[in-house]
Amino acid sequence: MRKRQGVGALMPLLFVGMSVAVAGMPVAPCDHKQAAIEISLQRIVNEWPMRGSGESVSQYVQKLGIRLAFSSLYGRNIPWQFWVVRNLAPNAFSIGGGYVFITDGAVNFVRNESELAAILAHELGHELAGHFCVAPDLIDFGGLFDIFSAPKTQQHQVGVGSLTQVIDPVKEQQADQIAVTILQASGYDSHAMLEVARRLPKGDGVHPVDFQRLRALESLLAKIPPIKAQDSEDFLTIKRTLAAEQATW
């Protein structure tokens, strides 16, 4: 069982570090939401098929997520836990409290490690920006943000499992900005954010194109030169593992 760390007393200092590390995004302590977040976690674990924490895919995603999180000062003080959901549809979401979820389908979807890092970094961005701390209490749930659901022009809610998903275009763009910073600091190609957004399945009603978000990303990345990031051997192994699993069945 993971030991959760209290960060409340350190928060004033962490805010300062955070403002540098993640481009001025506001951060707020979230202790008052923790109980709702834990309920949401239990609900997800009880409802959805998850990969075990000992599986190689889970261990790799956890390792990559931690590497990304530790690129920001505040990220080092959050007890991150990354879960892999057994679902072939590409998706990733976070619920606060350091809990981040990504599906097998998303790992299959990416073409390189920077793209996978981009998906995780976006979810870290929601956490680091404090989005869960200010989220309204939605039917006994603290909030849920999803990288693959395109935001509309106004905040709206959609159902995921028995949870309510909040899509706020402003917060999605904030998470993108933080993700770009994280990717740069971690040595991944931040342009992978744009590649992922452009390549999302289109026309299926689930992933409509959000041109506003794409334009904002293009503008942000125009100042940042792309880099050639080498895929790690771990990443290549995981891709082979998933391919072999699918071939088995």
Binding site: R43, V158, S162
Partner: peptide, 15 residues
């Protein structure tokens, strides 16, 4: 038995 609540928005199977 498993502590989840209806309604849900997607089909899930869990061993």
């Amino acid at each position: 038995l498993y502590g989840y609540t209806a309604p849900v928005n997607s089909t899930e199977v869990k061993i």
